[in-house]
């Protein structure tokens, strides 16, 4: 079958964010994803990778953590899987700002939850699993 899989690991520090975006952009463009949807995929992944680096590993007390980024593409779908070994963090248990909060003027708005919201809204499907001591965040983009 026409399936491509690419895996790369990155150090869990903020300097890796740009490298992860470059890795994803290079492959997504090659697979024919347009600029707008490539950007959205990068944004979704960036938000979750940021959480893993800033909260997951920090709270675990792990200083040399890694983030594994796997990109798999078939005919219908592009899937990005991110794995880490930090503390379990389920993004779906995080409170997302509701419509009423988003409509508030910026001066009155609580800060927070925006990142996870952007992760969910910018791909066709977003899932989370915890298995064998690993967090697994899965992002799917339909190719047709």
């Amino acid at each position: 079958m026409d399936t491509t899989t690419e895996l790369r690991k990155f150090s869990a520090n903020l300097d890796s964010l740009e490298q992860i975006r470059e890795f994803l952009t290079g492959l997504a463009i090659k697979l024919g994803l347009d600029k707008g949807r490539t950007y959205k995929l990068c944004l979704a992944v960036d938000e979750i990778a940021t959480n893993i680096i800033n909260y997951g590993y920090l709270k675990s007390g792990i200083t040399d953590g890694m983030i594994y980024v796997m990109l798999r593409s078939g005919k219908e779908m592009l899937t990005v899987i991110i794995e880490d070994t930090a503390i379990p963090f389920n993004p779906f248990e995080n409170k997302i700002p509701g419509e009423d909060e988003l409509a508030l003027p910026l001066e009155e708005r609580p800060i927070g939850g925006l990142g996870i919201m952007l992760a969910k809204e910018n791909v066709d499907e977003f899932r989370y699993e915890f298995e064998n001591g690993k967090n697994r965040n899965i992002f799917c983009v339909n190719l047709r």
């Binding site: 964010l17 975006r21 950007y39 990068c42 944004l43 960036d46 938000e47 940021t50 003027p105 910026l106 001066e107 708005r109 800060i111 925006l114 990142g115 952007l118």
Partner: peptide, 20 residues
């Protein structure tokens, strides 16, 4: 070229500090 929620938070911070 790219703006994540970390950037949005700075905009919100600026707006909150400067006032409406």
């Amino acid at each position: 070229d790219f703006m994540a929620s970390a950037g949005l938070r700075v905009i919100i911070f600026a707006k909150q500090k400067l006032g409406s």
